[in-house]
Design a protein around this nucleic acid. Sequence first.
DNA 1: TTCCCCTATGTAACCGCTTTCATCATTGCT
DNA 2: AGCAATGATGAAAGCGGTTACATAGGGGAA
Lengths: 333, 333
Amino acid sequence: MRYTIEEVAVKAGVSKATVSRVMNGTATVSRETKTKVEAAIKKLNYEPNLNARKLAGGKGGSIALVLEESTDQFFSNPFWKLVVDGFITYAASHNQHPVLFFHSSQETDRGLASALIRGNYDAIAIFGWHHDINVIEKLLPKDIRVVFGGRQGESARFTHVGVDNVVGGEMATQHLINQGCRNIVHITGDLTVESGRERLQGYRNAHKRAGLKLKEGNIVEGDYSTARAEKVLLEYLEKRDDLDGIFAGNDLSGIGAISVLKEKGFSIPTDVKVIGFDGTDLAKTNSPSLSTVAQPSYDLGSEVARQLILPASEKLVNVNLPLELIVRESSRK
Amino acid sequence: MRYTIEEVAVKAGVSKATVSRVMNGTATVSRETKTKVEAAIKKLNYEPNLNARKLAGGKGGSIALVLEESTDQFFSNPFWKLVVDGFITYAASHNQHPVLFFHSSQETDRGLASALIRGNYDAIAIFGWHHDINVIEKLLPKDIRVVFGGRQGESARFTHVGVDNVVGGEMATQHLINQGCRNIVHITGDLTVESGRERLQGYRNAHKRAGLKLKEGNIVEGDYSTARAEKVLLEYLEKRDDLDGIFAGNDLSGIGAISVLKEKGFSIPTDVKVIGFDGTDLAKTNSPSLSTVAQPSYDLGSEVARQLILPASEKLVNVNLPLELIVRESSRK
DNA sequence: TTCCCCTATGTAACCGCTTTCATCATTGCT
DNA sequence: AGCAATGATGAAAGCGGTTACATAGGGGAA
C-alpha cells in the first residue's frame, strides 16, 4: 500500500505538520529535523496523495497542455510536434509531467472546461484556441494560471506567448514583392483562427506599403491543410493563370501549392515563386525546397511551459517570439 | 466560486449523503428526492470536486492514455493518429475526457509511474510499452485498471488489446512468396519492441512453412522509421542486389524502401515486390501504392478505451483484433 | 395488534494533507 | 536578571466528498 504522511511522521519522529513543512518548504524547519524527515520519505518511498493535497488547498504541481486542434491537423503538421516537444522537454527538466488534452471540436467548450476544472491543474496552456476567450475566463477558477500559445490575447487575465502573425504575413509578402512578384496569390490559413486572419492582414499591409493594388480574387481560402490548398489553387487556376507568386498560409499549404503548380506545368521559381509559413522540416525537404517564415516552434512550447511553471509570485507578461525569413529554392530570383 | 455538495444539499433540502447517493446511484433514493436533488445540481451548475471525491474513496471518472513513443515516431506515423482518434472518440462518447501522457525515453519509468499515481486515474491505457511490465505492476495501486495496447501481454493482472504480429508477419511474407518471390529481405521494425520481434518471427515462420531457406543476411534491422529503412536498405544493396521482395516492418519503412529502390533503378513490382505493415493512408497514397498488412488502428484505440471504461465488475479479457492483407501495386504479379 | 424486515434518509467518521494557532525553548536586549 | 522577540514544532480544524451505521416509517405475516 501507499504510505501516508502520518507514517512518514511516525518514522521520522515528528508530527504530520512538520513533514508537510519539509515537503513544501513553507516554514522554517531545523536542519536536523529536515534531514530526518527527508530520510524517512526516501526510505518509505513516500508519494504524497495529490488529491488530499489539493483538497487541503495545496498546489499539486500538475500542468496541462490543451490542444484545440483537430487530430488531423495536429498529426499532419510537424509544427505541433516541435511545440509539444519544447513544452514537454522544458516541463520534464523541471520535474513536471504535463498532461495533454485534445479538444476535439465535437465537444462543447463546457465539456473541456469541466474536464479541466475536475482535473484540478495548477496551470494550463492552451494552444489553438479560437473561441471566445471568455468561456475560459468564466469557467476556470481564478487561481488557475492560464497561458495561451500562438495567439494574441486580448485578455487582461491571461498572458500569451506567440509570434506577430501580421508582421509574418508582411515578411512573406514583402519577400515575394522584392523578388519581383506583382500578382501574388494568398492561400489563406484557417480564417476561423486568429493566426489565419492575421497573416492575411499582413498580406494586405505589404501590398499597401508597396503601393501595389491587391486583387481580392487573389485571396483564396484554405484551412492550413495540404489537400485544401491543392483544391482551392486548382479552382483558382481554372479562372486565371497569370499569377507569379504564392504566399501560402503555412508550409503544408505551400507544399500543396507547389505540387499543383508542378502538375500544371509551371516552373518554380521561374514562373511562380512560393513561400510558406512555419518553418517546418517539410518545407526544407520538399522539392523544390520551400521558402518560409519560420516560427520558433520549439521555443514557443518551452516558453509557454516556462510561464506555466514560474512561481505564482512572478508577474507574467506577454511574449512575442521572433520570426525568421528563410529563403529557399521556391522563391529564388 | 464553485459550489459544494453541502450547498446542493441545502438547496434540495436533504443531507450531503443523499446528494452523494443521487450522483453516484449507490443506493436507493426515492423518485421524488432524486428529482429535487437533480434540479438543485442543475440550478447551481454544480461540479463535484474530484479531489475530494477521490480522497474519500470514490472513483473520479478520469482515464489516461500513455504513449511510450518518441514524439518523432508518434507524429510521423499516422498509425498513432488513428489509435488516438479511436480512443478519444470512444471515450468522449462515454463522457470521458481522457488525458494523454507522453513518456519520453529521457524520463525514468519511475517518473511516469509517479506521475500516474499522483494523477490518480481510474484506469490507464498504455501503448508501446517495451519495458519490464513489472515496473507498472509494482508501482501502480492494485485498484487501478491498466490495459495495454498493441502488445501481447504476459501479465496475469493486466489485459491487452492487440493484433497477432507473428501471424501478421507470416501473412506479409507468405503473400510475397505467393507472388513468386524467393529472396525476400525483411527490414525489421524496432527490435527492442515486441511487435518488431514478432513480425520478424512471422517472417521466419513463413519461410519455414514454405520450405524456403532463409538467409540471415536478408534480415536488416530498421526501427520503424523511413530514414532508417532507407539507410539500411542502401547498405544492403551495396553488397547484394538479387532480392525480389521486401517485407518492411511498417508502412513508413516500406515507403523508404520503395524510394530507395526507385532511385536505384529497380522497377516495382516487376523487379522487386514490396509490402509494408499497418495499413496507413501513407501506403495508399504512395506511388506506387504499397501493399500492407492492415491493423484496425482505430478499433485498437476504441477497444482499449472500451475496456478502460467498462464497469469494475466486468471481467476483462485479452482481445486480438483481426489483420487484413491489402494488396496494392507494389506487390502485384 | 405485534414483530420483523425493508426502504429512505440523516449523522458522523474518515480519506490524507495544509495551515492556523498555541506552546515551548532559545536568544538578544535593556 | 527579566522580558520581548524569534524559531521550531505539535495539536487540531478543516478541505469536499463517501460510506458505515443508526433511525424512522410502512407494509406484510403471524
